[in-house]
Design a protein around this nucleic acid. Structure first.
Ligand SMILES: [Mn+2]
Ligand SMILES: [Mn+2]
Ligand SMILES: [Zn+2]
Ligand SMILES: [Zn+2]
Lengths: 138, 138
DNA sequence: GACAATAATGCACTTCCGTTGCATAGGTCA
DNA sequence: TGACCTATGCAACGGAAGTGCATTATTGTC
């Protein structure tokens, strides 16, 4: 818990009780988390507070937002030292059609794509959908 | 217009006046179109009708849906003979940060990705964001 | 053409999720 | 302690997708 506190402080986020809990929750789950997920997990907390906490975390590069195509925004902790805006830190995400969970595949960077004349890429999002390792009956 | 009528009929969609107009609209624009776009273009039409028309078109493989990360669903005509579910027909999409338009880059297929053990991919979505050819001052 | 069956359209309403405004509580520092 | 800033709580809004049901149009049959 001390470590979490330090992590938040380093990134310029005051370590309130709520924030520590949310960080801890994100760290324990190894999948991407939606606002609704957190809301369910912290029943007595205010939706807005959770929402703003996630936004603050995102601004301060503690989490990155994931758009997996479900229409629901999800979040996952950033790797230490990651800058989600840099091409080198853009990894792909995998959404399981069976368990409906989204995971970061941080080892799998998005390959560089050659675009037609005149197109300049600044950001990229790659989502694969299918059956995850847990569900594929391993 | 006869051609459009034929295209719809071939795909098992009855060519009503509204549907012909919507198809024509999609064909003229060379960018991905949202329901709101169509609603604006056909001010006197019902949103539900437009909504259901797009959904019918999608089911019958006349258009494909595009999730460009804006949270707004967009649609574009399929290439003739394309089956959007097949890996070979999955192309990337480009969202311009300047003009906010999304285009299909049908020539650019999504590269095959090697996944970790146990993951089975069935579908993929790749969106690049940046500056499009029209906006890059060509 | 008249009729029944089927499909498309129009209208009202709902739900879900993200987002904002503003008042209050809490923590920080002089 | 008091002034100040930040975080939290409460309420309400807004956009977009989606649904139920009545009405209108189209089709095929006699
Ligand atoms: Mn990730
Ligand atoms: Mn496309
Ligand atoms: Zn799974
Ligand atoms: Zn542009």
């Amino acid at each position: 818990m001390k470590k979490i506190e330090q992590r938040l402080t380093e990134n310029g986020v005051r370590p309130t009780a709520m924030r520590l809990l949310i960080y801890k929750y994100l760290a324990e789950k190894e999948v991407a988390i939606s606002l609704t997920d957190i809301e369910a997990a912290f029943a007595k907390a205010e939706r807005t507070t959770l929402y703003r906490t996630l936004r603050t975390f995102e601004e301060k590069k503690i989490v990155h937002q994931i758009d997996d195509g479900t229409g629901i925004q999800k979040y996952a902790l950033c790797e230490p030292g990651c800058d989600c805006n840099l091409e080198q830190d853009l990894h792909l995400h995998f959404l399981c059609n069976n368990c409906d969970e989204t995971v970061c595949l941080t080892e799998h960077k998005i390959p560089h794509i050659n675009l037609p004349e005149g197109f300049v890429a600044e950001d990229a999002n790659l989502v694969l959908k299918g059956i995850c390792d847990k569900c594929s009956g391993q």
